[in-house]
């Protein structure tokens, strides 16, 4: 089955404020979208709407294929060691080769460290490792480069390229530049209400 993610004419309201409206996007297999815009313009809300975690104020989202999400909420148990915290999700996802992502993101030496002792960038790398291990065709990424050092950024950009060339979809909300394979840029300011 080909992965697909289509949003039709969606609007987003937070409290009394309409953040954006009339936004449509269509991702087919292999597409990479870069969502840009200033802070508070609704990038994170858009990602959560695409993920199905928030209801759009108007419009609809169609999804075909499993989704993986990385946002500022890492969902890793602070008191557990990184290995145990990741193992829970690997078990749920039925990951076939969890070692590969661990190696690519250089998490190997950290596996025995409790998650709460990890730095921001290390936690982010752990969340990205979970995303890769999930093996889902649709990647929804909210500021995935936050906290990553230059080398890890390059590694992850390369991983996105591999993901898209394999028929995956990546939707990346990021205020900083990120190298995506033939990205389509979606400037949220154009849809601001």
């Amino acid at each position: 089955m080909q992965a697909r993610l289509v949003a039709k004419d969606i609007a987003c309201r937070r409290g009394e404020r309409l953040l954006f409206r009339g936004l449509s996007l269509a991702c087919e297999a292999g597409d990479a979208y870069h969502i840009t815009g200033a802070n508070g313009i609704g990038k994170s809300s858009l990602i959560r709407i695409l993920a199905g975690l928030m209801q759009p104020f108007a419009g609809a989202v169609e999804r075909e294929g499993a989704m993986g999400l990385v946002d500022e909420r890492l969902a890793l148990d602070g008191n557990r060691s990184l290995g145990q915290a990741l193992a829970f999700w690997e078990g749920l996802d039925g990951s076939r080769d969890p070692g590969r992502a661990i190696q690519l993101l250089q998490l190997g030496p950290l596996m025995d460290v409790p998650v709460r002792y990890l730095s921001t960038g290390q936690k982010k790398r752990a969340a990205l490792a979970r995303l890769i291990n999930r093996g889902s065709p649709i990647w929804l990424l909210d500021e995935p480069l936050n906290g990553l050092d230059g080398e890890a950024q390059k590694t992850f950009e390369a991983l996105i390229a591999i993901h898209c060339s394999g028929g995956g979809i990546a939707v990346v909300a990021s205020h900083q530049p990120i190298a995506l394979p033939s990205p389509r840029i979606l400037d949220l300011a154009r849809y601001a209400a």
């Binding site: 999400l69 909420r73 969902a75 890793l76 749920l92």
Partner: peptide
């Protein structure tokens, strides 16, 4: 704790 950490979000995406 789990709500703030986004555990239920991740579970939702996995169909739980």
């Amino acid at each position: 704790d789990d709500l703030e950490a986004g555990v239920f979000d991740q579970l939702h995406l996995r169909g739980v």
